[in-house]
Amino acid sequence: MPQLDPTSFSPQLFWLAIAFILLYLLMSRLVLPRVGKVLGQREERIQGNLEKAVKLKAEAEEVLAAYQKSIADARAEAHSALNQAAAEIAAATAAREADFARKLAEQTAVAESRIKVSKTQALADIRTVAGDLAAAMTSKLTGVTVNGSDAGGAVEAVLKERA
């Protein structure tokens, strides 16, 4: 086996050392930093894009939230306007009703007092008519002439008795 020939050992060891040290220096100084840089840049870029996407998404969510909030606000505003209008209408109605009731009461009072006056008038008239009637009937039946005021007094007495 040529592998066991000891004269081949020293040159192979020497050149292996040269080759490996050369390779190590090339890799550690030149090659690997470059590859590492490219990989690092890519990672940064992907990370950056991802972060940008996350940020844009957050912005979109913000816009959506603002939009929803404005809708809700508008709805609430409309609602309160509606409520206010309803309240105003109700208040106006109530005021008008109260006014009407007051006017009605006034008119009723006037009418009642008028009725009262005409009633007392009528009652007083009935007394005189009844007295006159009683005097006329007495004179007709008995032929006695009765004084009008006496007849009036008698009628008054009867009315008092019956009342």
Binding site: L50, A53, V54, K57, A60, E61, L64
Partner: peptide, 9 residues
């Protein structure tokens, strides 16, 4: 759509 985007992210 935002939720889908969220899942993909």
């Amino acid at each position: 759509r935002l939720q889908k985007l969220d899942a993909r992210l």
